[in-house]
Design a protein around this nucleic acid. Structure first.
Lengths: 355, 355
DNA sequence: TTGGAAAGTGTTAACGTAAACACATTTTGA
DNA sequence: TCAAAATGTGTTTACGTTAACACTTTCCAA
C-alpha cells in the first residue's frame, strides 16, 4: 500500500495502460470492462490507495441533494432556535457540495400538526432527513416509510431504541435526570419536599424526553433514600394566570419552607422561576433544562440555581453533517452520539455562548 | 439585494456586457479595467450578491498553504494530545483546499526548547501559525517577527492582552479559578484549610495559565471571606518519591482533617489524587483541571471530586479553522473566543468523550 | 510623429472527475 | 447468415474559477 497523496485517475489510467474512461468505469462499478483490464486497474487502484478528489467530484456533479429537517417551530431565543442555528451552520458548509437543507416545522405541542408535517414530507423527493423525535408512534411510522424508500434518517433530541436511524444525537435523558437529582440532593435536606413541575400545552401528552428525565430523577432519589415528598404540579404554557394560582395554592399547602427544591424537565423552567421571584421565595434550589435566554437571565440573578445543557446547536449541526457525509462520501457515522450533560451555574454560564 | 444561489462569473459578465476576464479582474482588484466597466460590474456583483464557488476556486488553485501548529509534545492521553486531535481533525477538513498543517513540538517544561522550536520555524516559509502560548517573552518576540512578515497567528491555551493575534481560543483562566473556588466553598467549612499544589518540572517557571487560575481562585476566597489557611506545596513532575514525602510531611503538620480541600491548577491533579488514595484520605474536596484519562478514572471512583474542562480539541480545531478561513476565504474570525468552563463530576463525565 | 510602454479587454487552458458520446468488436437469435 | 443487441474502449465536454496569454487601443516621450 504505497502512500501517495494526489494520485489521479489519469495516472492510474497510464499505469494500467487504459483510458480514463475505463478507470472511471472500474471505480464506479459500471461494468463494460473486460475481466483482464478490470483486474489490472483494480490492482493499481489498490496499490496506490486511490481516493477521488472530492472537490473535483462535486464540481462536476450537477447533482444536488435535498435534506429535510423536521423540527418544531420556534420563537426568538426558544430552545429549537438553537438547534435550527446548528442546522443552518451545517447547511452552509455542505451547500458547496450541492446539498440543500429544507426545514419543515410543526407545533411541538400538537401531534396532529406533527402528523400533517409528515404527510407533507411524504410527497417530496429527498435524500435524507433529520427528525426531532417527539411523538413516538408517528416517528415509528415515518421511520418505517423511510426504511421502505431507503432514505437515511437521523434522530435528534430523543432516541427510540428499537428503531434504526442512521444516527442519534442527543443526551441520555435518563442520566441527565439522575444528575439533576444528584446535584439537588447535595444541596437540600433529604426530608424536605421537592416540587416537580411539568409544563405543557393544554392536556397534551408529554414527550419521551421529559418522561425519561423524570424517571432518572425519581429513581435516583429513591436509591439515595430521599425521604421527602414529591409535589407534582402541571402548568400550562398558554395560561400564566392559571399557573400563578396553581402555584399559589401549592405553596399554601406546603408552608414554611417545606419545599426545598424544584425542577422542570424541559426548557420552561423560567415560568416557575418567575413565580418564585415574584413571591420572593429565595431558598429553593431550582433546577431546569436548556440555556435559552429567559433561563440564562434567571440563572445569572440567582433564581435558577442550575441549568442542564444539552448542546442544541451541536445536535443540529452534527445531524446534518452525518447525513451529508453519508450521501457525499458514503461514510457512516457513529450510531449513538450522546451529547455532554453540561452543568451551568451562575459563574460559568457566560462562557457558554455558541456551543 | 436580490437572492440568487448560484450566480456565476459568466452570468455577471453577460449582464454587464463584458468578458469573464474583466469580471475576474474586478473581483480580485487586479486593475486593468476601465472606470466605466468597473462600476458596472461592481454594481451587478453587489446586486446579485455574488459569492465565488469555493469548490471551483480550490480545484483550479494549485497553490497550497502551509500552517504550523507550535504545541508541546505529549504522551498518550496527556492534555496536549487532545489539542493535537482537534488540530488533526481540522487539518483533514481543510486538506482538500490545499491547506497542509505541520505540527512542531517542544518541551513544555523547558523554555530553551520552546526557543529552539521558534528558531527552527523562522527559517520555514508558511502562511499561518497556531501558538500554544507558554513562555510570555518568547511568544511576544515570535509575534513581533510574524507581524513583520505579515503572517497570521492564533494563540491557544492562554492569551496575552497587549498582543494582537488573529484570534485567541482558550478559557478565561482567572474566572475558571474563581469557579473552582466557588464550587469548593460550597462544600467545605470556611475555616478549614485548603491545599494548593503546583506541579512543575524541576525549578521551572509556571505558565501564565496556572498563575491566572490561582489568582482567580485566591481572589474569590478572599471576597467570600474565607478564613482558613492556604497551604502551598510545590511538587515535581519527575520525582514521585519527593512528592510522596513532601505531602506526607504536610499532612503531618495538618492533622485530623484540618485540610478540607485541595486543588491543582493544571492537569496533573492525579498525582495528588494518588497520594490521597493511597493514604485513604477521603474527606478532601479535590479539584483539578482537564479531562485526561488519568484524571477521568480518579474522578469516576470519587477521589477527585471536580474537574474543570476547557475543550482542548475544540481549541485546536477552531484555531486551525480560523487560520484556514482567513487564508482561503479571507474571513476574519472573532478575536477572543473563550471556551466554556465545563464542570465535570462523576455523574456526567461519561458523556464528555470527543468534545 | 512615431514607436514602445501601458492600459483595457477578450479568449483559452488548466484543475480532476463524471458521464455522455462515438466507435469498434463480439455475441445473439431468428 | 446477418442484422440487431450487447459489450468493450477511448474521446470529449462540462463543472466554475483562475490566470496566462493574445490582441487592440491609448498614451507619452524622444
Amino acid at each position: 500500500m504505497e502512500e501517495n497523496k494526489n494520485i489521479r485517475i489519469i495516472d492510474i489510467a497510464k499505469m494500467a495502460g487504459v483510458s480514463i474512461g475505463t478507470v472511471d468505469r472500474v471505480i464506479h462499478n459500471r461494468g463494460r470492462v473486460s475481466q483482464k483490464k478490470l483486474e489490472k486497474v483494480k490492482a493499481i487502484l489498490e496499490q496506490f490507495n486511490y481516493t477521488p478528489n472530492i472537490i473535483a467530484r462535486s464540481l462536476v456533479s450537477k447533482k444536488s441533494y435535498k435534506l429535510i429537517a423536521l423540527i418544531p417551530s420556534f420563537a426568538e431565543n426558544e430552545y429549537w432556535m438553537y438547534v435550527a442555528q446548528g442546522i443552518t451552520k451545517a447547511a452552509e458548509e455542505v451547500r458547496a457540495y450541492g446539498v440543500v437543507v429544507e426545514q419543515h416545522h410543526f407545533n411541538q405541542y400538537d401531534k396532529t400538526s406533527f402528523d400533517r408535517a409528515i404527510e407533507a414530507i411524504k410527497s417530496i423527493e429527498f435524500d435524507g432527513i433529520v427528525i426531532a423525535n417527539f411523538f413516538k408512534t408517528s416517528v415509528i411510522t415515518l421511520s418505517e416509510f423511510l426504511n421502505e424508500k431507503d432514505v437515511s434518517y437521523v434522530y435528534i433530541d430523543a432516541n427510540i431504541y428499537d428503531q434504526h436511524p442512521l444516527a442519534y444525537y442527543g443526551t441520555n435523558s435518563y442520566d441527565s435526570g439522575a444528575i439533576a437529582a444528584q446535584m439537588m440532593l447535595e444541596r437540600i435536606d433529604h426530608n424536605k419536599d421537592i416540587l416537580v413541575s411539568k409544563i405543557s400545552y393544554q392536556q397534551d401528552e408529554l414527550s419521551n424526553q421529559v418522561l425519561n428525565r423524570e424517571k432518572g430523577f425519581l429513581d435516583y432519589l429513591q436509591n439515595a433514600r430521599y425521604s421527602g415528598k414529591i409535589v407534582d404540579v402541571r402548568l400550562k404554557v398558554e395560561d400564566p394566570l392559571y399557573n400563578f394560582n396553581t402555584l399559589d395554592q401549592i405553596f399554601r399547602q406546603h408552608p414554611n419552607g417545606a419545599i426545598a427544591g424544584a425542577i422542570t424537565f424541559n426548557s420552561s423552567c423560567h415560568i416557575l422561576a418567575h413565580y418564585l421571584k415574584e413571591k420572593e421565595i429565595r431558598d429553593i434550589y431550582l433546577v431546569g433544562y436548556d440555556l435559552i435566554e429567559k433561563n440564562r437571565a434567571l440563572l445569572k440573578e440567582g433564581t435558577i440555581k442550575l441549568l442542564i445543557g444539552q448542546r442544541p446547536e451541536l445536535q443540529g449541526f452534527n445531524a446534518i453533517k452525518a447525513l451529508s457525509n453519508k450521501i457525499i462520501l458514503g461514510v457512516d457515522p457513529e450510531r449513538i452520539n450522546f451529547m455532554p450533560i453540561d452543568l451551568l451555574i451562575k459563574e460559568n454560564v457566560d462562557y457558554y455562548k455558541d456551543f
